[in-house]
């Protein structure tokens, strides 16, 4: 067991982890952050995406010990001071159905808009291509992101 510290959604959190604990499990089971979901355990689906120092990573592929002293943001952190324009747009467009992929998609789209506030439709598709959604056919999600990108 090793004690690590994570700047998690703006707050310093300390946690004991095993060398083989993956970040996703530590976030969910030891730190109570439930928005990242497990959907494949191998980086295919993107449901577990979080921002690591501002860049999206698959938290199922990251060992918890690796993020010692780093900054992690999940959607609990993004909407700390109210929903972001992206999240508002998702609501307005009925962008999600079951909603299980929503946290991961939100992380990917947030990362995109942070570095490229006015992406094209193709850039949006590229940015969320690592997030599998089985319900929507992506169209409503892309439209919601486009709406924010045009602002």
């Amino acid at each position: 067991m090793k004690k690590i510290s994570i700047n998690l959604n703006g707050e310093t959190r300390y946690v004991h982890v095993e060398p083989n604990d993956v970040l996703l499990d530590v976030l969910r089971d030891k730190l109570g952050i439930k928005s990242p979901k497990s959907g494949c355990e191998r980086g295919d689906c993107g449901a577990c995406a979080v921002l690591l120092n501002g860049k999206s990573v698959r938290s199922c592929l990251v060992l918890a010990v690796e993020v010692d002293g780093q900054e992690i943001t999940t959607i609990e952190g993004l909407s700390k001071d109210g929903l972001t324009p992206l999240q508002e747009s998702f609501i307005e467009h009925n962008a999600f159905q079951c909603g299980f992929c929503a946290p991961g998609v939100t992380i990917s789209a947030t990362e995109l808009l942070n570095k490229n506030p006015h992406p094209s439709r193709e850039e949006i598709k590229e940015a969320i291509a690592g997030n599998l959604c089985r319900c929507t056919g992506y169209e409503s999600i892309i439209e919601a992101i486009e709406k924010v990108a045009k602002k």
């Binding site: 439930k34 928005s35 979901k37 999940t74 959607i75 609990e76 909407s79 929903l83 999240q87 998702f90 609501i91 307005e92 009925n94 962008a95 999600f96 909603g99 299980f100 929503a102 946290p103 939100t106």
Partner: peptide, 15 residues
């Protein structure tokens, strides 16, 4: 608008 929309995009939805 979906009545579960806000829950699902804010991470509040419990699975």
């Amino acid at each position: 608008i979906r009545i579960d929309g806000k829950e699902k995009v804010s991470g509040a939805a419990i699975y």
